[in-house]
Amino acid sequence: MQCGDIGPCLHGEPKLQEKSMSSDIVRTGVIGCGGIAQHAHLPSILRNPKEQLVAVSDSFEDLARKIAVLNGLKETDAYADYRALLERKDIDAVTVCAWTGVHAEIVVAALQAGKHVLVEKPMAVTSDDARQMVQAADSTGRTLMIAYNHTYDLATEYVGRMLKTGELGDILYAEVFFCEDHGAWDAGAYRSTVRSATPVKPGTRPTDPYIQLLHYVHNFDSHVINLMRVLIGEPKGIEYAKWIPKSGLWAMLDYGTYKTFFKNVETGQRRFEKGIEIYGRNKRVRLDLAPPSQRYTPGVVTITDAQSQTVTTPMLEYRWPFELEHEHFSQCVLEGKQPLTNGHQALPDVVMAEDLARLALKQ
């Protein structure tokens, strides 16, 4: 996968950045050692020939030490304070897997310390925080990439090529969907997560309905918002949005010549359904993405001919999207190029989440 080329809204030459690498290896630290770090990012870093794991950090120091040793480091390479990790001169980049509420603080500090940054989605809670992150990346000349692993799925890339070549014909309608099953889809994988011996204190739930819904949209819909924008571009506006607690979020987006229906449904059933279906004048294509923790489950592309109704499912090469994501990050850092999901590209996701939350509460 080349930097800067997957879908209609990301075409064009990537912006060159100031190179800072003295070798062909990106020396990486990981900040936040929870489930997504353990089951996705750390294995991907260790498998990436262009990355070297150097240190880890977590506010639970015993957890950081356990994760360091389990991944071939020394206990002295584990830190309770991420600032101590950022002071190390032998670290070129960090992968941030901490709680979303502290993303802006950590990312800005890392960029100002001269580190390149890959940060887990969602980028930030508010667009103001996201803009601070983008400004820090621009002012320091360092790489900022948001970890939208589904965007790097080879099935997503396949659908992107279909759209760019016009194979579908004029788009008539699209649906973006995410049906949540309350965690049953990844319970097996995350059951093996290493945890701190220190009990986790329950956090204080926000009482503001807008903040509650904003967190909901970020946690469950940031992937499909970015996927939609990567594949079919920017909507002209949101015509309707409705949120029913414990049921889901629905919205209708205006794309000028067609509409896109956006749905997040909580069924309470053991199912996982995430993706996009695009109705073209010539063909209809449906992209079904796999649960991110299921390493050997590929995304599925289903194509239906509009006239004959013949259905085909192409056999695609499979690579775990998290590994492709880290390979893309290290390539962009080493070559001084902007990632596909850079800060400027991902900022509108945060803005759209805010708009969806505000409008849904008015209905």
Rank of each mutant, 00 (worst) to 15 (best):
S308Y: 07
R295E: 04
K274Q: 15
N282P: 08
A306D: 03
I276V: 10
V285D: 01
G275L: 04
T304H: 01
D288Q: 12
G299F: 03
R270A: 13
Q294R: 13
F322P: 04
R284V: 03
Q269A: 14
K274A: 09
Q309T: 10
Q269K: 15
T312L: 04
V285S: 03
G275I: 05
L289M: 11
E273S: 14
R270H: 12
I278Y: 01
L287Y: 07
I278P: 00
P292Q: 15
Y318L: 03
T297F: 11
Y279Q: 07
S293C: 12
R270C: 10
E273W: 15
E317V: 11
S293P: 05
S308D: 09
R271D: 08
R271M: 12
E273A: 14
S293M: 13
R271N: 10
N282V: 07
L287N: 05
R284P: 00
V311H: 02
Q309E: 14
R295M: 08
T304W: 03
R271E: 13
L316C: 05
G268P: 09
F272N: 04
G299R: 00
L316W: 04
P291E: 11
Q269P: 09
V301W: 01
F322Q: 10
N282E: 15
T302H: 01
S293N: 14
G275H: 06
Y318H: 08
T304E: 07
A306W: 02
K274Y: 08
P321R: 02
D305F: 03
N282R: 14
R319E: 15
P314W: 06
F322A: 12
A290L: 00
G275S: 07
Y318R: 05
Q309N: 13
W320N: 10
R281N: 12
P298S: 07
R286I: 13
Q294A: 14
R284K: 12
G299L: 03
K283Y: 05
